[in-house]
Simulated scan of single mutants.
Amino acid sequence: MKKINHITLADVCKAAGVSLNTAAKVLAGQAKKARISEKTAKKVKKVAQSLDYVPNQMARSLRAKKTSIIGIFVADMIDPIYAAITHSILEELPKHNLFPLLTVAEAGYEMCRQTWLRNRIDGLIFCGTTPEMTPQAYSNLEKNNIRIVIAGNYYLPSGQSAFLPQVSLVHIDNHAGMQLIINHLIELKKQKIAFITGPKSHSDAKDRLQAYEYIIREHQNPIIADLQTDERFWQRGYLAIKQLFEQEVKCDGIIAYDDLVAIGAIKFLHQNGINIPNDIAVVGFDNLPQAEYSTPPITSLEQPAQAIGQRSVELLVKHLAQENKIEHVHMIPALIPRESTSTSHSQIAHKNEY
């Protein structure tokens, strides 16, 4: 069998004509901090690339007592917002010389937990959480020196609507978003605005319902379409509006928990000869691609998924540097008006920076 020649850091040093320490600093992304000239850094990188040098991550981890591996947990692989946040995190981690370890709820929490511990991850970003993620579970992870950030929606235990994980969070500002939506519908002279709730186990569903109830009382009594179940997506919107109509509740505006719920509501309205937006205007959350290509295109609140992912990584990096103060960061969304509220709207009307 032919012997494989592994290129070492010493080989790179010799070829580049620099010291071992200089090469190590450059390839660890610390050239600027170590005051190594840009010319030397470029030379070392070019030589390493030409030799096809790959750092021994295990040896580096043993020396530094850190792995630079960050676990990413995705609570639901078919949820488009979790997917968008995860994509943003995967783009952001390499900028900080951190390596992703992707784990998914479908594999089971215990398998994921064992994978995190076996790979000695330094930090963990949850893109959503599941029932297994109790305060005790977070505490056990932190006892293993794993820093934690939750990105986006998190799981609410049954009967605990006030539950708030004692870890750092980065998520959409649902109150600010609901204010944008209601202001938009009031400007369009809508007077009976209903809200279709989301699954009770979703923190976003709780926040949006509370925001709706608080803000809408300035204009009318709340009109709430609630299935009292965790039915999701199109079915939830269709059945919730069907229930509202069977109860003979009148409305001229509908705010749906998310865009997929809005699409289900629109299907029911179409089937019953309701004109959108003249009879009833419809607004969703998240600004998914489906919203733009629905009939009619749906006015939606854009979920700042990329910004949530970026900010989550920035926050985790702070925790890895031993800045352990828990932070709850709210990202301000933007309203994207389309034909489901007014045929004259086709461009962004409201946008806020975070």
Rank of each mutant, 00 (worst) to 15 (best):
E92F: 03
I121S: 04
A105C: 03
A64G: 05
A64F: 09
I148R: 02
V104F: 15
I172N: 14
P135F: 03
Q114H: 14
I85W: 00
F126N: 07
P157L: 09
G152V: 07
A137N: 06
Y154T: 08
Q166T: 09
I150P: 12
P165W: 10
I70D: 08
S158M: 10
H87K: 14
N153Q: 14
H175E: 13
E110A: 13
A83S: 13
S68H: 10
Q114E: 15
E110W: 11
L101T: 10
E106G: 02
E92C: 11
Y53F: 09
G128Y: 08
I81D: 02
M58Q: 09
E92L: 03
K65E: 15
A137P: 01
T103A: 09
D76Y: 02
E38C: 03
R113L: 13
K95S: 07
T115C: 10
N153D: 15
E38N: 09
C112F: 01
V74A: 09
A162R: 09
T129Q: 09
G108D: 13
S50P: 00
W116H: 01
M111Q: 15
Y138R: 04
G123H: 03
H171K: 13
E142R: 15
K42E: 08
V104Y: 14
I72Y: 05
S139V: 00
V74D: 12
I125G: 10
Q136T: 11
T103C: 15
L141M: 15
L98I: 02
G71L: 02
L117F: 06
R120W: 07
F99I: 09
D52R: 13
I172S: 08
D52N: 14
A137E: 15
S68L: 07
F99T: 07
N119R: 10
Q136F: 03
G108Q: 10
A105E: 14
A107I: 01
I146G: 08
A162V: 06
T40I: 11
I85G: 03
E91F: 01
D122A: 02
A151T: 11
G71V: 02
E92K: 12
T130E: 05
E92W: 03
Q166Y: 04
N144I: 00
K66M: 04
T40C: 01
H96E: 13
L164K: 15
T129R: 06
V149T: 14
Q160V: 00
V104T: 13
S61E: 06
M111V: 12
Y155G: 07
A48V: 00
Y154D: 14
D173W: 02
N145Q: 12
L117K: 08
L169F: 06
V149Y: 10
I89G: 08
L51N: 04
N145F: 07
L98E: 04
I172G: 06
H87C: 11
I69L: 12
Q114I: 06
F73Q: 05
L102Y: 07
D76T: 06
L98M: 05
S139I: 00
S139C: 02
S37I: 03
L102R: 08
N140I: 04
G123Y: 02
E38L: 06
A162M: 06
Q57S: 08
L141Y: 07
L141P: 10
H171R: 13
G71K: 00
Y155P: 11
E91Q: 12
A84H: 01
A107E: 15
Q160D: 11
T130H: 05
V74R: 04
H87S: 13
M111A: 15
S68W: 01
P165T: 06
P135L: 04
Y53W: 01
H87A: 13
S61Y: 03
R113P: 07
N140Q: 15
